[in-house]
Amino acid sequence: MTKRLLIVWHSMTGGTRQIAEAAAEGARREEDMAVVLKPALEAGPDDLLAADGYIFACPENLAAIAGVMKAFFDRCYYPALGRIEGRPYVTLVCAGTDGTNAIRQIERIATGWRLKPAADPRIVLTHADTPEAILAPKVIGPDDLEACRNMGHALAAGLAMGIV
């Protein structure tokens, strides 16, 4: 029976897009896994309801989840409430120097939905800390991309085996 993994992402400078795509690539290693990679602007409650597990990937902007990702959660929270309990999720955050506040926000939302974390969240740091560096296009290093591939594969494998 094919399982469905939904990866919802947002990216302003390309960093989060790269880590979301790496997670999708890793998840696709698993047979009988439908991987849906969807921008937060396009994702909605029906996408959440149709999936067996989730990866939420976003940048941290001004010590918070990016506004577009927040809008996704706002749009989907009540329509999905009480309907996706117990499903596994992981979080990927791309941040300049920290990322922990974005992780906390997503964890609070996931707690409200009663999702279960399938792995520790992953923060990919770009070390961008000047206006120019923050706004510049990002290139994520191979080690971080491989870690995101492995996270995607591990979640997909757990879904396929029914253990997450």
Results as ranks from 00 to 15, higher is better:
3 K>Q: 03
3 K>T: 08
5 L>K: 05
7 I>H: 00
7 I>K: 00
9 W>C: 03
10 H>G: 14
11 S>E: 01
13 T>E: 09
14 G>C: 02
15 G>C: 03
16 T>I: 12
21 E>G: 13
23 A>M: 12
26 G>C: 10
29 R>Q: 13
37 L>K: 02
38 K>Y: 13
41 L>P: 09
41 L>F: 14
42 E>T: 08
43 A>R: 01
47 D>W: 12
47 D>R: 02
47 D>C: 07
47 D>H: 08
47 D>M: 06
48 L>M: 07
48 L>G: 04
49 L>M: 04
51 A>Y: 08
52 D>R: 05
52 D>Y: 07
53 G>Q: 00
58 C>Q: 01
59 P>S: 04
63 A>G: 08
64 A>P: 03
65 I>H: 03
71 A>V: 13
73 F>Y: 09
73 F>E: 09
77 Y>M: 01
77 Y>D: 01
78 Y>C: 02
83 R>I: 03
86 G>C: 01
86 G>D: 03
87 R>M: 00
89 Y>L: 00
91 T>C: 02
97 T>K: 02
97 T>M: 10
104 R>V: 15
105 Q>P: 05
105 Q>N: 09
106 I>S: 07
109 I>Y: 04
119 A>H: 11
121 P>E: 05
122 R>D: 08
124 V>Q: 04
125 L>W: 10
130 T>E: 08
132 E>D: 09
132 E>P: 09
135 L>R: 13
136 A>V: 06
137 P>N: 06
137 P>Q: 05
139 V>E: 13
144 D>M: 08
146 E>C: 06
152 G>L: 12
156 A>S: 11
157 A>L: 08
157 A>C: 13
158 G>A: 12
158 G>K: 10
162 G>K: 06
164 V>D: 14
164 V>W: 14
